[in-house]
Computed example of a mutant assay.
Amino acid sequence: MTEISPMQKPSFSTTISLGNWLTIGTIVVAGLAAFFQMQAAIGAMDVWRVEYDKRLEKLEVKVSPIEGITFRMGQQEASMSAINARVDRAVDAITDQLKELRKDVGSVNTSIAVLTRSIDARSQRGDDLGTPSRSNGPR
């Protein structure tokens, strides 16, 4: 094995050089800068939070009348269903009346057709319906 010469041995010196002071100062300055930057960010977040809370309060004031909308919508839906039921009953009644009217008109048509056929049949046979005919003249 080879022996290590005194030049190659690691050594620790307790003397503080200018480089050491610059390194310590840089670390301290960087730490303080980070601390103050963090404090500024926290302050900015607090300001933002206060402004955000104010906006939320304004929105809550605007939205508060809307809270009863579900109740009012329920009432409107109930009244609309009642109106729909009444309209349905009226339409059903009108439809039933139209059916009866059609049936009555159909029976009147049938009666008129029967009467017309009867009159035509009598006039073709030459039956006297009790009225003087024009062709015979006065007697």
Rank of each mutant, 00 (worst) to 15 (best):
R86M: 09
I4Q: 15
G130M: 00
V63I: 10
R49M: 12
A85L: 08
T95M: 02
V63R: 05
Q97L: 11
M45P: 00
T95R: 09
R139Q: 06
I66G: 02
I119M: 13
Q37L: 15
D88H: 06
Y52A: 11
P65W: 01
M7C: 09
A33W: 03
A121T: 12
L56Q: 13
M38C: 06
K58A: 14
F12W: 07
A90H: 03
R89V: 10
A41I: 03
W48I: 03
R49T: 08
Q8R: 03
L59G: 02
A44S: 04
P65F: 01
P6A: 05
D92I: 02
K62V: 08
M45A: 15
R125A: 15
D128Q: 07
V29G: 01
G137F: 03
L56C: 05
A113F: 04
I16Q: 11
Y52M: 06
M1W: 03
M80C: 01
L18T: 05
V29S: 10
R89F: 09
K54V: 07
R125V: 06
R49G: 04
S11H: 09
L56A: 11
M1F: 08
V47Q: 08
F12L: 13
R72S: 12
L101D: 11
L18R: 04
V47M: 05
Q37N: 14
V108T: 10
Q97P: 00
M7S: 13
D96P: 01
V91Y: 02
N84G: 14
S107Q: 15
S118M: 09
L56F: 02
F12A: 05
A90R: 04
V108C: 11
F12I: 13
I66C: 02
R134Y: 15
V108M: 12
R117A: 15
I83R: 06
S107W: 08
L101Q: 12
S81T: 08
G106H: 04
I119N: 04
A93G: 11
V50Q: 09
T2D: 12
I42Q: 11
M38F: 11
L59C: 03
Q97E: 15
R72T: 10
T131K: 04
R55S: 13
M1K: 07
Q76H: 12
Q37I: 13
E100P: 00
V108E: 11
I24R: 03
K62S: 12
K58V: 08
F71A: 14
V63Q: 10
T2Y: 01
A113H: 06
I94Y: 07
S5Q: 07
V105R: 10
M7H: 07
A93M: 10
D96Y: 06
F36H: 06
V108H: 08
V63G: 00
P6D: 11
E77D: 06
V50N: 05
P65N: 02
T116M: 04
I69V: 09
T14Y: 09
M38W: 14
